[in-house]
């Protein structure tokens, strides 16, 4: 599996750093410290009777990792681009590393902490419990996800268009 080109962006000391990416045309982010690798997509081995948002498993550096399609986790029915990216992120106690399928990695986003504000009760249809903060970047909102909570919760989410 090859690693894609370096993600651009600058980490500014003292400011929270997030990795920004696109899912279904929306800008999302996860804590950069929880991102271990960014990989090109590879078709996973399909596992039997998996949750609808799990595509299967992949092998990376002697570990077997579950592959979670973030589009499906957020309830987006349309299929994504042909060449999505895989973010290997720190997961949960049961699955310490999880591969997240996202449409496209944008860049590292390092903003002053006060630019991240508490989310409204729902943002794009996602409950505030699953959101760490919201910021404006390039005139568009960025939603910083609490990805571990998203992975643990069975709650269905319907991303609003």
């Amino acid at each position: 599996m090859t690693e894609p080109a370096t993600t651009t962006g600058e980490v500014i000391e003292g400011q929270p750093a997030a990795l920004m990416f696109l899912v279904a045309g929306r800008q999302f982010a996860v804590d950069l410290n929880r991102v271990q690798h960014i990989l090109e997509y590879q078709a996973p081995t399909r596992t039997p009777r998996r949750p609808p948002f799990v595509e299967g498993i992949i092998h990376h550096k002697a570990r077997c990792l579950p592959v979670v399609n973030l589009r499906k986790r957020l309830g987006v029915e349309e299929s994504g681009p042909p060449n999505p990216a895989l973010l290997l992120v720190a997961g949960t106690e049961r699955d310490p590393v999880v591969a997240l399928v996202v449409d496209r990695v944008l860049r590292v986003l390092s903003l002053p902490a006060d630019r991240w504000v508490a989310p409204p009760p729902r943002m794009f249809g996602i409950r505030a419990e699953f959101i760490r903060g919201v910021a404006n970047e390039g005139g568009r909102p960025v939603v910083w996800l609490e990805e571990a909570k998203l992975l643990l919760s069975p709650e269905p989410i319907g991303l609003l268009a």
Partner: peptide, 11 residues
């Protein structure tokens, strides 16, 4: 032989 990830299946 490694463990099967917990999220991999509902079985």
């Amino acid at each position: 032989i490694g463990p099967l990830p917990a999220m991999a299946t509902l079985l």
